[in-house]
Protein backbone atom coordinates (compact mmCIF):
# COMPACT_ATOMS: atom_id res chain seq x y z
CA UNK A 1 0.00 0.00 0.00
CA UNK A 2 2.85 2.38 0.83
CA UNK A 3 4.56 1.51 -2.43
CA UNK A 4 3.44 4.76 -4.03
CA UNK A 5 -0.01 3.87 -5.25
CA UNK A 6 -3.34 3.62 -3.55
CA UNK A 7 -4.83 0.16 -3.76
CA UNK A 8 -8.39 0.79 -2.62
CA UNK A 9 -10.15 -2.15 -4.21
CA UNK A 10 -8.07 -5.18 -3.23
CA UNK A 11 -9.85 -5.15 0.13
CA UNK A 12 -12.94 -6.49 -1.68
CA UNK A 13 -11.11 -9.44 -3.24
CA UNK A 14 -12.16 -12.87 -2.06
CA UNK A 15 -9.54 -15.33 -0.87
CA UNK A 16 -10.20 -19.06 -0.57
CA UNK A 17 -9.95 -20.27 3.02
CA UNK A 18 -9.69 -23.52 4.96
CA UNK A 19 -8.01 -25.71 2.32
CA UNK A 20 -10.58 -28.14 0.99
CA UNK A 21 -13.49 -25.82 1.80
CA UNK A 22 -11.72 -22.99 0.00
CA UNK A 23 -11.45 -25.05 -3.15
CA UNK A 24 -15.22 -25.39 -3.00
CA UNK A 25 -15.48 -21.59 -2.97
CA UNK A 26 -15.40 -20.82 0.73
CA UNK A 27 -13.92 -17.38 1.35
CA UNK A 28 -14.08 -14.52 3.86
CA UNK A 29 -17.53 -13.55 2.63
CA UNK A 30 -19.41 -16.69 3.74
CA UNK A 31 -17.22 -16.78 6.85
CA UNK A 32 -18.38 -13.29 7.83
CA UNK A 33 -21.97 -14.25 7.02
CA UNK A 34 -21.67 -17.16 9.40
CA UNK A 35 -20.12 -14.88 12.02
CA UNK A 36 -22.91 -12.34 11.58
CA UNK A 37 -25.60 -15.01 11.86
CA UNK A 38 -23.86 -16.62 14.84
CA UNK A 39 -23.44 -13.29 16.61
CA UNK A 40 -27.10 -12.49 16.05
CA UNK A 41 -28.18 -15.80 17.51
CA UNK A 42 -25.73 -15.38 20.39
CA UNK A 43 -26.92 -11.91 21.33
CA UNK A 44 -30.60 -12.84 21.09
CA UNK A 45 -30.11 -16.25 22.72
CA UNK A 46 -27.84 -15.21 25.56
CA UNK A 47 -29.61 -11.89 25.98
CA UNK A 48 -33.05 -13.42 26.32
CA UNK A 49 -31.89 -16.38 28.42
CA UNK A 50 -32.60 -14.75 31.83
CA UNK A 51 -36.23 -14.03 30.86
CA UNK A 52 -36.12 -11.28 33.45
CA UNK A 53 -39.10 -9.01 34.07
CA UNK A 54 -36.64 -6.16 34.54
CA UNK A 55 -34.18 -6.77 31.72
CA UNK A 56 -30.46 -6.56 32.12
CA UNK A 57 -28.31 -4.74 29.62
CA UNK A 58 -28.05 -7.46 26.98
CA UNK A 59 -31.70 -8.41 27.34
CA UNK A 60 -32.68 -4.74 27.04
CA UNK A 61 -30.64 -4.49 23.86
CA UNK A 62 -32.25 -7.61 22.42
CA UNK A 63 -35.73 -6.38 23.36
CA UNK A 64 -34.98 -2.96 21.91
CA UNK A 65 -33.96 -4.51 18.60
CA UNK A 66 -37.03 -6.72 18.59
CA UNK A 67 -39.45 -3.92 19.38
CA UNK A 68 -37.83 -1.53 16.94
CA UNK A 69 -38.30 -3.90 14.01
CA UNK A 70 -41.69 -5.05 15.30
CA UNK A 71 -43.01 -1.49 15.37
CA UNK A 72 -41.51 -0.81 11.97
CA UNK A 73 -43.35 -3.83 10.56
CA UNK A 74 -46.72 -3.14 12.12
CA UNK A 75 -46.62 0.58 11.39
CA UNK A 76 -45.43 0.31 7.79
CA UNK A 77 -47.22 -2.80 6.58
CA UNK A 78 -50.27 -2.48 8.79
CA UNK A 79 -51.95 -5.04 11.01
CA UNK A 80 -50.89 -7.86 8.68
CA UNK A 81 -47.27 -6.82 9.13
CA UNK A 82 -46.80 -9.05 12.14
CA UNK A 83 -46.78 -12.09 9.89
CA UNK A 84 -43.74 -10.75 8.04
CA UNK A 85 -41.91 -9.70 11.17
CA UNK A 86 -39.62 -12.78 11.34
CA UNK A 87 -38.48 -12.23 7.77
CA UNK A 88 -37.82 -8.51 8.18
CA UNK A 89 -36.13 -9.06 11.54
CA UNK A 90 -33.79 -11.68 10.09
CA UNK A 91 -33.00 -9.53 7.09
CA UNK A 92 -32.40 -6.43 9.20
CA UNK A 93 -30.09 -8.14 11.68
CA UNK A 94 -28.15 -10.00 8.99
CA UNK A 95 -27.43 -6.79 7.08
CA UNK A 96 -26.87 -4.76 10.26
CA UNK A 97 -24.27 -7.16 11.61
CA UNK A 98 -22.67 -7.57 8.20
CA UNK A 99 -22.29 -3.79 7.91
CA UNK A 100 -21.10 -3.28 11.47
CA UNK A 101 -18.59 -6.14 11.42
CA UNK A 102 -17.15 -4.67 8.25
CA UNK A 103 -16.06 -1.53 10.12
CA UNK A 104 -13.53 -3.56 12.14
CA UNK A 105 -10.01 -3.73 10.69
CA UNK A 106 -9.15 -6.96 8.87
CA UNK A 107 -12.82 -7.91 8.75
CA UNK A 108 -14.57 -8.38 5.46
CA UNK A 109 -17.82 -6.57 4.59
CA UNK A 110 -19.97 -9.06 2.74
CA UNK A 111 -22.60 -6.39 2.01
CA UNK A 112 -20.04 -4.59 -0.17
CA UNK A 113 -20.53 -7.23 -2.88
CA UNK A 114 -23.34 -6.71 -5.36
CA UNK A 115 -23.72 -10.49 -5.63
CA UNK A 116 -24.77 -10.65 -1.97
CA UNK A 117 -27.05 -7.62 -1.96
CA UNK A 118 -28.65 -8.60 -5.26
CA UNK A 119 -29.34 -12.08 -3.92
CA UNK A 120 -31.00 -10.57 -0.84
CA UNK A 121 -33.01 -8.22 -3.05
CA UNK A 122 -34.15 -11.06 -5.30
CA UNK A 123 -35.43 -12.85 -2.20
CA UNK A 124 -37.35 -9.70 -1.20
CA UNK A 125 -38.86 -9.07 -4.63
CA UNK A 126 -39.83 -12.70 -5.18
CA UNK A 127 -41.35 -12.82 -1.71
CA UNK A 128 -43.40 -9.64 -2.23
CA UNK A 129 -44.64 -10.95 -5.56
CA UNK A 130 -45.58 -14.32 -4.08
CA UNK A 131 -47.30 -12.62 -1.14
CA UNK A 132 -49.23 -10.37 -3.50
CA UNK A 133 -50.28 -13.34 -5.65
CA UNK A 134 -51.23 -15.40 -2.60
CA UNK A 135 -53.40 -12.68 -1.07
CA UNK A 136 -54.98 -11.19 -4.18
CA UNK A 137 -54.70 -14.11 -6.62
CA UNK A 138 -54.83 -12.80 -10.19
CA UNK A 139 -56.21 -9.49 -8.98
CA UNK A 140 -52.61 -8.75 -8.00
CA UNK A 141 -51.87 -7.80 -11.59
CA UNK A 142 -54.18 -4.81 -11.23
CA UNK A 143 -51.21 -3.37 -9.34
CA UNK A 144 -49.65 -2.76 -12.72
CA UNK A 145 -52.70 -1.01 -14.13
CA UNK A 146 -52.72 2.67 -13.19
CA UNK A 147 -56.05 4.17 -12.21
CA UNK A 148 -58.01 6.59 -14.34
CA UNK A 149 -56.11 6.03 -17.55
CA UNK A 150 -57.66 5.64 -21.00
CA UNK A 151 -57.75 2.02 -22.14
CA UNK A 152 -55.87 2.97 -25.28
CA UNK A 153 -52.76 3.87 -23.29
CA UNK A 154 -52.65 0.68 -21.23
CA UNK A 155 -50.44 -1.34 -23.62
CA UNK A 156 -47.85 1.39 -23.16
CA UNK A 157 -48.29 2.04 -19.45
CA UNK A 158 -48.48 -1.51 -18.13
CA UNK A 159 -44.96 -2.42 -19.34
CA UNK A 160 -43.69 0.81 -17.79
CA UNK A 161 -45.31 -0.06 -14.48
CA UNK A 162 -43.84 -3.56 -14.61
CA UNK A 163 -40.38 -2.16 -15.34
CA UNK A 164 -40.81 0.28 -12.48
CA UNK A 165 -41.69 -2.65 -10.23
CA UNK A 166 -38.68 -4.64 -11.39
CA UNK A 167 -36.36 -1.67 -11.00
CA UNK A 168 -36.54 -2.34 -7.27
CA UNK A 169 -34.13 -5.19 -7.92
CA UNK A 170 -31.44 -2.75 -8.94
CA UNK A 171 -32.22 0.22 -6.74
CA UNK A 172 -32.48 -1.76 -3.52
CA UNK A 173 -29.36 -3.83 -4.09
CA UNK A 174 -27.19 -1.05 -5.51
CA UNK A 175 -28.12 1.31 -2.67
CA UNK A 176 -26.74 -1.03 -0.01
CA UNK A 177 -23.77 -2.22 -2.03
CA UNK A 178 -22.70 1.25 -3.20
CA UNK A 179 -22.97 2.78 0.25
CA UNK A 180 -20.88 0.07 1.85
CA UNK A 181 -18.29 -0.05 -0.89
CA UNK A 182 -17.91 3.72 -1.16
CA UNK A 183 -17.37 4.03 2.58
CA UNK A 184 -14.68 1.40 2.64
CA UNK A 185 -12.92 2.83 -0.39
CA UNK A 186 -12.83 6.22 1.33
CA UNK A 187 -11.39 4.68 4.47
CA UNK A 188 -8.73 2.89 2.46
CA UNK A 189 -7.82 5.98 0.46
CA UNK A 190 -7.41 8.19 3.53
CA UNK A 191 -5.55 5.42 5.33
CA UNK A 192 -3.14 5.30 2.39
CA UNK A 193 -2.77 9.09 2.60
CA UNK A 194 -1.71 8.80 6.23
CA UNK A 195 1.01 6.29 5.40
CA UNK A 196 2.22 7.97 2.23
CA UNK A 197 2.31 11.48 3.71
CA UNK A 198 3.70 10.30 7.02
CA UNK A 199 6.55 8.62 5.21
CA UNK A 200 7.27 11.69 3.09
CA UNK A 201 9.30 13.50 5.74
CA UNK A 202 8.71 16.40 8.09
CA UNK A 203 6.60 18.39 5.64
CA UNK A 204 4.12 15.52 5.33
CA UNK A 205 3.38 15.14 9.01
CA UNK A 206 0.71 17.84 9.22
CA UNK A 207 -1.34 16.62 6.22
CA UNK A 208 -0.85 13.07 7.46
CA UNK A 209 -2.37 14.11 10.77
CA UNK A 210 -5.24 15.76 8.94
CA UNK A 211 -5.86 12.61 6.93
CA UNK A 212 -5.81 10.59 10.13
CA UNK A 213 -8.40 12.99 11.57
CA UNK A 214 -10.57 12.57 8.49
CA UNK A 215 -10.28 8.81 8.83
CA UNK A 216 -11.40 9.00 12.44
CA UNK A 217 -14.46 10.95 11.41
CA UNK A 218 -15.05 8.51 8.56
CA UNK A 219 -15.11 5.56 10.97
CA UNK A 220 -17.90 7.26 12.89
CA UNK A 221 -19.65 8.05 9.63
CA UNK A 222 -19.28 4.40 8.56
CA UNK A 223 -21.01 3.29 11.76
CA UNK A 224 -23.89 5.64 10.95
CA UNK A 225 -24.09 4.40 7.35
CA UNK A 226 -23.95 0.78 8.50
CA UNK A 227 -27.00 1.19 10.74
CA UNK A 228 -28.82 3.52 8.39
CA UNK A 229 -28.47 1.29 5.35
CA UNK A 230 -29.66 -1.76 7.26
CA UNK A 231 -32.64 0.31 8.37
CA UNK A 232 -33.28 1.57 4.84
CA UNK A 233 -33.17 -1.96 3.44
CA UNK A 234 -35.60 -3.19 6.08
CA UNK A 235 -38.03 -0.28 5.76
CA UNK A 236 -38.07 -0.53 1.96
CA UNK A 237 -38.79 -4.24 2.30
CA UNK A 238 -41.69 -3.28 4.57
CA UNK A 239 -42.96 -0.71 2.07
CA UNK A 240 -42.84 -3.26 -0.75
CA UNK A 241 -44.67 -5.77 1.43
CA UNK A 242 -47.23 -3.07 2.23
CA UNK A 243 -47.78 -2.57 -1.49
CA UNK A 244 -48.13 -6.30 -2.03
CA UNK A 245 -50.61 -6.68 0.84
CA UNK A 246 -52.72 -3.60 0.13
CA UNK A 247 -52.15 -2.99 -3.60
CA UNK A 248 -51.50 0.78 -3.60
Amino acid sequence: MAAGKIDALSQFALHPMFGELGRMGFSQSPLMMAVAAGLTLLILGVGMAPRAMVPGRLQAAAELLYEFVYNMCSETIGEEGRRFFPFVFTLFLFILFGNLLGVFPYFFTFTSHIAVTLALTIVVVVLTTVVGLAIHKLHFFSYFVPEGVPKLLLPLLVPIEILSYLSRLISLSVRLFANMMAGHVMLEVFGAFVIMLGGAGLLGLLPAGLALGVNTVLIGFELLVAVLQAYVFAILTCIYLHDAVHLH
Binding site: L166, S167, R175, Y231, V232
Partner: peptide, 23 residues
Protein backbone atom coordinates in the same frame (compact mmCIF):
# COMPACT_ATOMS: atom_id res chain seq x y z
CA UNK B 1 -34.17 7.35 5.33
CA UNK B 2 -35.56 9.61 8.03
CA UNK B 3 -35.04 13.30 7.29
CA UNK B 4 -32.82 12.87 4.26
CA UNK B 5 -30.28 15.49 3.29
CA UNK B 6 -30.28 17.05 -0.15
CA UNK B 7 -27.41 14.86 -1.23
CA UNK B 8 -29.22 11.72 -0.10
CA UNK B 9 -32.32 12.76 -2.04
CA UNK B 10 -30.20 13.40 -5.11
CA UNK B 11 -28.51 10.02 -4.83
CA UNK B 12 -31.88 8.30 -4.48
CA UNK B 13 -33.32 10.10 -7.50
CA UNK B 14 -30.29 9.19 -9.59
CA UNK B 15 -30.44 5.57 -8.49
CA UNK B 16 -34.18 5.22 -9.12
CA UNK B 17 -33.83 6.89 -12.48
CA UNK B 18 -31.02 4.64 -13.63
CA UNK B 19 -32.15 1.36 -12.10
CA UNK B 20 -35.29 1.11 -14.26
CA UNK B 21 -33.21 1.76 -17.35
CA UNK B 22 -30.74 -0.95 -16.33
CA UNK B 23 -33.52 -3.47 -15.81
Amino acid sequence: APDPSAFAVGARVALDLVSALLV
